[in-house]
Amino acid sequence: MKPFARIILFLCAVMMLTATVDLPDWADPGSPASTHLSPGFIEQGYHETATPNVVTAVLADYRSYDTLFESVVVFAASLVVMLVLRRTSTGTSRIKHFRPKREGRDTILRGAAQSIIPVMQIFALYVLFHGHYSPGGGFQGGVIFGASFILLSLCYSLKFAMQRFKEKMVLICCACGALLYAGIGAVCLAMGWNFLGYAGLAGLLGVTDVMARSHGILAVEAGVGITVMAVMVSLYYDLASGGDMEEGL
């Protein structure tokens, strides 16, 4: 089987390398990708969405339908991992590996965690809400926020983290983030615009259409952030404890 797999890999590599002969030059301003749609986004992006960061505007407004489903992909991942791994039945645990118990020890780790985690969470919020102006947004902010909880449970213990952020709460956050995103789409629908046409929020918020798009982007980024944060924590809880939520890494 192995030589066969190697032949297939080699063929794929040859095919992909062959495809590069035709491609436009690296960072070529005349390439189709830079001339077809990008100028439109760059020129009109700010006037239509009041968002200086073009990436955010494209991600969360022009192609927000994609982004909705990307956050749903993340949500689906946590749901799948939970369905497959989580065991509530009390039985013989499959896990027989050595797991160090560090209850009540290691002041250094905890001290460092105490000083780093708040800063990390503030930074996550900054990344999330500053996405209009600088690189960042819901996905990145959510991941950093989730990482702070993972750090907490690494430095203390899984149980400690689960007391702070309960498993049920995590699942609710997973669904509510995506629900916030889709709900905003539905509100726009109810206001007489198309699904996810944030301009429909203008009437509710009392601002112009352009500003309403900007606010809509902010709200959906927050939804994405909540989902991603909760999913990261949920994945860690399930995978690190092997599904029994007893003790983790």
């Binding site: 050595f98 160090p100 560090r102 290691d106 250094i108 780790l109 460092a112 000083s115 780093i116 800063v119």
Partner: peptide, 21 residues
């Protein structure tokens, strides 16, 4: 500042884990 806090702590954690192992 961050490196000053994080890097020695990480080293400590690794050594601690090795000691327990």
């Amino acid at each position: 500042l961050y490196i000053f806090i994080a890097s020695p702590t990480a080293t400590h954690a690794i050594i601690d884990a090795g000691y327990e192992f």
